[in-house]
Design a protein around this nucleic acid. Structure first.
Ligand SMILES: [Zn+2]
Ligand SMILES: [Zn+2]
Ligand SMILES: [Zn+2]
Ligand SMILES: [Zn+2]
Lengths: 141, 141
DNA sequence: CTACTTCCTATAGTGACTATAGGTTCAAGA
DNA sequence: TCTTGAACCTATAGTCACTATAGGAAGTAG
């Protein structure tokens, strides 16, 4: 009924050091230990960690996940805060798709136009040296 | 004809500490100094730094930029290496657009389906808790 | 009981910066 | 010439979300 950190890792797909890291920053509660100080988990830990994993895959930051988890722990509260977090994430994802689509266009053009000769005539290098425009900062996922 | 690091920053849009960081890791050459050890730059530094900035905006990693710069310094070489770097970046951008588009779909659905009531019925929280699928790692820009 | 895997803590490293502390130099105005 | 204040200098630590390493202890199968 209770199992080791390695087994929790296998059941959730989250690496062992990452689980310990989540505990250290207070995202996962400290589990009970064996006499020899090894962690022992139950089913609750599996679902909590799977929640975290899914949220991370959707690109939520750990602070946002912390907030979402604390909402999950209080099911009678309004879910407005959760929806706001999700909407903020959606806006960010849309912004990034737009930015990456612009990058794709420019990358494709510079690759297509290159005749694959000497660096002196390379469109890739030329395009990178062209500072007549800007893209703004490209940030995290 | 030569100017300070602050002026270089203004001309390229790259922040002063970032310029010093680029020098420290060998991406920019160490410029001459005044008697009081302050850096003095010329036009070459502006174009090199603008190249780096544009490449960063397109999401190239500093190691890739290092390689591109060393190609630019040898204009008689074949540009095949530059093209490979650009193609790799394009593949990565396309992968990320696909991943983000999938995230957008899921985020939109979970936001749309939420009736904005209690957390207990919130589709956002429910969707995050649903582990019946996976998205793989979401990495950098 | 031995061998082997897994576990433990603590610390440092990753990438690409950004921030801070505490001091020095430069340029312009009085 | 002197003074003020912005801009400069180095060195170090912090950011985010991990990942890697070292050096040892605990658990388990045979
Ligand atoms: Zn080329
Ligand atoms: Zn561009
Ligand atoms: Zn909701
Ligand atoms: Zn999902």
């Amino acid at each position: 009924m209770d199992f080791s950190i390695g087994e929790l890792s296998r059941r959730t797909g989250v690496k062992v050091p990452t689980i310990r890291y989540y505990e250290q920053i207070g995202l996962l509660p400290s589990p009970p230990r064996t006499e020899g100080q090894q962690r022992r988990y139950g089913k609750d830990a599996v679902s909590r960690l799977a929640f975290i994993r899914h949220a991370r895959e959707l690109g939520f930051e750990l602070d946002a996940i912390r907030a979402l988890l604390s909402l999950q722990d209080n099911p009678d509260q309004s879910c407005a805060a959760a929806d706001t977090i999700a909407k903020d994430r959606l806006v960010e994802v849309e912004r990034r798709i737009a930015a990456l689509t612009a990058l794709r266009t420019e990358l494709r053009r510079m690759i297509d136009e290159c005749a694959c000769g000497r660096v002196a005539e390379c469109r890739v290098i030329e395009t990178l040296a062209d500072t007549s425009h800007s893209h703004g900062r490209l940030a995290e996922g």
